[in-house]
Design a protein around this nucleic acid. Structure first.
Lengths: 268, 268
DNA sequence: TCCTTCTAGAAGTCTGACATCTCGTGACAT
DNA sequence: ATGTCACGAGATGTCAGACTTCTAGAAGGA
């Protein structure tokens, strides 16, 4: 992909999808999509910074800021005096450094995502939830349990917990019913936050561990009790650093291959 | 911690430990250590960029570059028009985004690291190793098997594989014996690379999955066969993006709590 | 052939300015 | 009193242009 193609792609790129964010974020996301979609193949060299700056009509410092983001997360390598290259093995959607949803994960594996056994309830928050989401005791929450399918096969059991107060509108109404319809229609919760509540998830912090399936979860996933699972316990935060949602995700062992990019920042 | 303290800490900081790297990396590492050591507590505000720049005697762009690195990896939050703050829940050594070694991990949990059942052999590389390390078939490798202890308790079984050719010196001699002594003396392999071979690990790419312990591993960890493990399969790369070492790490379930910072970079 | 030197080109660093956002403060009208 | 608005201080984001340092290859000489 040469400079002119790149320029054209950028000018026709759907900037609105990430509106309101910083320019350097948009540039980083633009390049990231090109890499993840294969338009910038692994190990290919990117144009140099002044050229990128000129052709995208963006200052060099902003370009550098974007490149820095991509380097940090393992998409590109920058070599002083030599150039900037797409990584040999750039992250994909199964990379845990990226907070993409389960649906995206399944789709990227070339499988058809689906859902069964949706269970939506409201429930007072447990102590564990309260401490993670900084709620007062027994605060009401919306709980969404789902068994996720990949080509009809059960691969993940997820439990999402969201404080009810998030759905309150100024006029006293609530958005809960709309979200429920959204979820039953196989749409992403993140997407609902972004489009209907003007709420963007900025990052998540997850704890990961191997787990032996208890009866309830084993039943959901149609495994025998004691089967191996990968448990992801995650809190999602918004742009202000406020916790927004909590998730438990139980992955069937070997259903996916999870990758992690580990930066050697700490040395002493 | 105020500006003057910070300035003093920076001027007396051991820059040699990270010699040869870029200035913005050094600054990022300096601040990261302050955060991880608790000198900059969570949610505290950092001095503004012009002040940091002036007091550290470094240009603002370099400061910004360092802050950008720290933000990406979840150590700080920057809010436009407001300021820069240490994250509420900054990464620790059990964070998988950081490629710190097992020893560091154990020590950060407040436990005493140890090793038992060290087994060092040379072995032709298997097909799996060859593909990961880009070696020709049956290339000779050094294999280091170790059971790692935390307060005398067996918590991890690790297998490190390094191509033998890495240890060849120009004069025809080899560094293998020195490394072996180093390992038996409970020192870090990374450290050996850095000090004796002038080889810095830049990052690692790991695959993670739950695993049921096979006989050999169960014996090493003194578990019964079929026990739950967390398997980390990792390739470490140097500054030029060349694969250097391969590791298998088998963690006893619930011996550690692993954290992952997941950035929402991908949205469509 | 091998070694050294030179050079083009790339990322890194520096400087200084301006743009934009946030939030508190205080004047003002209600 | 109270709510609204405008303003300004202070912070990060963006811009522009120059200079510095490093790398790899070309050129040239022993």
């Amino acid at each position: 992909m040469d400079l002119l193609e790149l320029q054209k792609a950028f000018s026709t790129w759907d900037k609105d999808a990430v509106e309101g964010r910083l320019l350097n974020h948009k540039v980083a996301e633009f390049l990231r999509q090109l890499i993840m979609d294969g338009h910038l193949p692994p190990e290919s060299q990117l144009p140099n910074e002044p050229d990128l700056s000129a052709y995208l009509d963006i200052s060099r410092s902003t370009v550098r800021s974007a490149l820095s983001t991509l380097e940090q997360s393992g998409f590109i390598n920058r070599i002083w005096g030599v150039g900037t290259f797409v990584a040999k093995d750039p992250p994909t959607y199964n990379n845990l450094n990226l907070n993409s949803g389960v649906t995206q994960l399944i789709r990227s594996a070339g499988l058809e995502p689906g859902t069964s056994e949706i269970l939506i309830t409201t429930r007072p928050a447990s102590e564990r939830i309260c401490s993670h989401l900084l709620l007062e005791a027994d605060a009401p929450t919306l709980v969404i349990e789902r068994v996720r399918l990949a080509d009809e096969k059960r691969v993940v059991f997820t439990v999402d917990v969201i404080p009810l107060k998030l759905f309150d509108l100024p006029n006293g109404q609530t958005l809960i019913d709309e979200l429920e319809a959204y979820v039953r229609n196989q749409q992403s919760i993140y997407e609902f936050f972004r489009l209907h509540m003007n709420l963007a998830i900025h990052h998540g912090i997850a704890w990961i561990r191997p787990l032996s399936a208890e009866q309830y979860i084993a039943d959901r996933l149609q495994l025998r009790e004691g089967s191996n699972l990968l448990h992801l316990e995650q809190v999602d935060y918004d742009n202000n650093g406020e916790p927004v949602a909590f998730s438990d995700e139980y992955y069937v062992a070997d259903a996916f291959r999870f990758q992690i990019f580990r930066s050697n920042q700490v040395q002493r």
